[in-house]
Amino acid sequence: MNKILYALLTGLIGAVLLHIIIILGVPLFTGRDAHTRVTAEGAPFAFHQLSAAEDEVGLSSRDPYLRTAVCHFDIGTQPLSLTAAGRVKFWSIAIYDRDANEVFSMNDRTSVAGDLDVLLATPVQVAQLRKTPIAALAQTILVEHRGTTGYAVLRAMVPQPSQEADALAFLEDAECLPFTGR
């Protein structure tokens, strides 16, 4: 009796684990994940503004009070510099790894002087930057990313229709470029 109960319990636990693995693996096999969606927007190392069109993975600019831009990157060879400045009421940025796990986020209230100035680097690159500090990076927020690929989502608030142009200009002027060592 104990052997039958043990076999049933083992089979049930195995079936549950198998179903969980299949459900979590579906986005990887279908190409319907956020990273694939972002890379389809255009070339890496550039912010691409999202439209308000319906999106199957939830990555769109459907909120009437926010404009959104995305940038995908690979920091395997050099860090990534994310910069933006402009007259917007509110902005926020979130950096995600390839699997859509949030690595870092901030907004204009938590930034230095209200401007976006972030340097994203691998742990080895961070160590190299700390060995030889660069004066131009004194106000830059240094973010460590354990992976090498991912994407950044930059949002600008548009509380009034008259501020639409400022938000679009903010996103258009935002930079997502490999760090050159200023």
Rank of each mutant, 00 (worst) to 15 (best):
G181S: 10
L129D: 00
A135T: 04
A84T: 06
S51V: 07
A53P: 03
A152V: 08
T68C: 06
L177M: 14
A138E: 11
G14W: 02
G31K: 06
T132L: 10
L82F: 07
S60D: 12
D173S: 12
Y96P: 05
V57C: 00
L12F: 11
P178N: 05
L137T: 05
P161E: 10
F90Y: 09
L9R: 12
T83V: 13
V26N: 11
I23Q: 10
G86Y: 08
V112H: 12
V70R: 08
P79V: 00
Q78K: 14
S61P: 05
N101P: 13
T132Q: 11
L50V: 07
V126C: 12
T140L: 04
M1F: 14
L59P: 05
S105Y: 06
V38N: 00
A174W: 00
D108L: 09
A152M: 01
V103I: 05
I21P: 05
D117T: 11
N107A: 10
T180D: 13
T10L: 12
Y65M: 13
A84I: 02
D97N: 02
G25K: 09
L154D: 08
G14R: 03
G76P: 00
Q125L: 03
D55T: 09
R109N: 14
L28T: 14
S92R: 03
F90C: 04
L50T: 05
R182D: 14
L129G: 05
D108A: 03
I4M: 14
E56M: 10
G114L: 08
L18F: 06
P159V: 03
A15Y: 07
R130E: 13
A34S: 07
T30D: 02
S162T: 15
G25D: 07
H19P: 11
A113Q: 14
V143I: 11
T148M: 11
W91R: 03
A135D: 03
A34H: 01
I13F: 04
D63C: 04
S61D: 05
P178Q: 05
Y6I: 15
A156S: 10
E54W: 15
D55L: 07
M1E: 15
A121R: 01
Y65I: 07
I75C: 02
S51L: 02
T148R: 09
R155C: 00
F29S: 10
F170Y: 00
S162H: 15
A40I: 00
Q160V: 12
T10R: 13
L137C: 02
